[in-house]
Design a protein around this nucleic acid. Structure first.
Lengths: 231, 231
DNA sequence: CGGATCGTTGACAGGTATCAATGCTGGTGG
DNA sequence: CCACCAGCATTGATACCTGTCAACGATCCG
């Protein structure tokens, strides 16, 4: 182990212990002892909208904890179009599938300004071998993957387009910590809901006209009752 | 611990060690020592088509390894209809989400004659605490959940109905160990693909007329090239 | 034989994809 | 500062697809 890496690791773990949202992220349950096992550096990353965090075919070396912002997980289809299979937000873990010694299953792309912690897989492996504290948090993340995927399948891919958009808006609003929330591009909405960009645009425009949806500088606002009535 | 439970546990673990498909199921990596930690009985269950393995609101006490057959995981929607979010087959683990101290996320219902091993959650928890051998297999199952969910989202909910049915048939054929495979009811196909029963029926009937699909007593057969061309 | 269940088919209205054109807005370079 | 451009968003027209409601056929079983 080179000295400078050890130093960075130490700095990283120091920061993790002082992390403002520590209770939400992967290392919530770790003890002082555990942090000393982090021999590889944890790095902060800031992403702008459109930045790619990783690609499917890339060598998997890191998992990523999302501290703020939003990431889309994307699968490209043979015909060149794409489908968004999940949205990740604060506290979510991107690249969890690589802990099984396999490749990334998606491309991960930022939708907003997004802050990330980049955690080397080696750290996770070491912690798993020498301490029991990470296991619970990891299982919780796997659980969330399943639960999100099921919600997606059961709620966002059924019914007509109006219903799906209404459900998506309700989902985004519910996920947000404030009243305002981030409204994706029409193309991304289409990729989320398996509808075309044009249809997404038409329905959003209609919701705006009906005042079910308002777009302000801080983000979007919805009339939840009206939208629930549609879905 | 009551003596008869201990006895049953011993019987159960004996059987696990001799299991014909052991390399496929959850206990693949377990050692002799580990099996001695199974203090609760593992029970074989045989299900007929339509039998319910567990329900969403049921108290979670067991996970289930599937030895043969097919199980659908079902979510009921507020309007009374349902959606199939995953199909489980040999080697898959049903109820994995309960290992996180939460409820079952679905109803699990057999589609065919199905053989199951019912494993008490306590066994899993104990093994996890005292031996490292289960961890890898569990992670592999979580991984498969994610990977299947993503395939579902990316391939079975996009494109028109003909494309979706073609993809479903290709998926079912690929999963099967023989050339023949199990063809679900039209209603289940609809619930799998987010289309109506009638549309599923129309397209299956058309595929039959075109000889892309043949139904024999052993199961269904498809013309993979023709169906790939559609999808 | 009658009834239940599932599959198939028809008719039609409504929804959505597709192709195409037109706004709108923010940024860039002259 | 302004004209221009690129990238989205919106809207229109139309053909096609799919949901809906309804009827009929096939098969199994008591």
């Amino acid at each position: 182990m080179e000295p400078d890496l050890v130093n960075k690791a130490w700095n990283g773990s120091e920061k993790c212990q002082r992390c403002r949202i520590r209770e939400l992220v992967l290392f919530a349950d770790l003890q002082q002892d555990d942090f000393e096992q982090l021999h590889h550096p944890i790095v902060d990353i800031e992403l702008a909208p459109g930045d790619t965090l990783y690609k499917e075919q890339q060598k998997p070396e890191f998992v990523f904890t999302i501290r703020s912002g939003m990431i889309k997980l994307v699968r490209y289809l043979p015909n060149g179009s794409y489908r968004i299979v999940r949205l990740l937000q604060q506290g979510d873990l991107a690249g969890i599938e690589t802990l099984n010694n396999t490749a990334y299953l998606h491309h991960a792309i930022a939708l907003q300004d997004t802050s990330i912690c980049r955690i080397p897989i080696e750290n996770i492996d070491q912690l798993n071998q020498h301490s029991p504290h990470l296991y619970k948090q990891l299982t919780a993340r796997w659980h969330r993957v399943q639960s999100d995927a099921d919600i997606w399948l059961a709620e966002l891919t059924v019914g007509n387009s109006k219903k799906r958009i209404a459900n998506l808006l309700l989902y985004l609003a519910q996920q947000s910590s404030t009243e305002h929330f981030f409204l994706p591009h029409r193309e991304d909405m289409g990729a989320l809901l398996a509808i075309t960009t044009e249809t997404a645009s038409r329905i959003i425009a209609e919701f705006k006209r009906l005042k079910y949806l308002q777009v302000e500088s801080q983000g979007a606002l919805i009339d939840k009752d009206k939208l629930k009535h549609i879905s």
